[in-house]
Amino acid sequence: MLQPFFEWMQGLRFSAFFLESVWPTPIVQVIHLSTVALFIGSVLVVDLRLLGRGLIDQSISELTRKVQPFLLWSFVVLVLTGIPQMSSTALKQYYSPFFWWKMGMVFFGLIVTFGVRRYIASKEEGYFGLVWPKVIGLTSIALWTSVTIGARLIGLLS
């Protein structure tokens, strides 16, 4: 069903530009990978706190608030730098199981990070007991680790 969309993407002049030029693709990849580090750091600082580790002197809500701009803007940059990489190799991505794995994990990761985690942070400390914040922290780490692994395997095994 989505194949025509991926074929259309692959056929764009924008995609051809990235595929045929020498420097744009590595430059975009470098920005993407550096932003991955910032994004993972932003996710981990809060996840560690949910696990009762890391910056434990800070409340979860305070830490979430402090890290939120980095989380949000790094995600925006990831999307912007991800688009040319995806469109220039659209059909390779379409046929890669790791691409769909990555997208699925991104979907759930966004729900946990920007939805569930923020909901936890909006309540008073202890409102969800001791276990649930830890479960969410671990889930978030697992989801974003899966995204990273899936992304790397698109290039290596597809």
């Binding site: 550096s34 994004f39 750091g41 932003s42 402090k66 890290v67 980095f70 990273t148 790397r152």
Partner: peptide, 28 residues
């Protein structure tokens, strides 16, 4: 190896990045 290297790179650079940003006065 490469996959674990990239995933752990995110962990290292992400956390060091926040430490550096604290020193630089950019975060936390």
């Amino acid at each position: 190896c490469l996959t674990a290297h990239v995933a752990s790179m995110g962990l290292v650079a992400g956390l060091i990045g926040f430490w550096d940003m604290r020193l630089a006065g950019l975060a936390l």
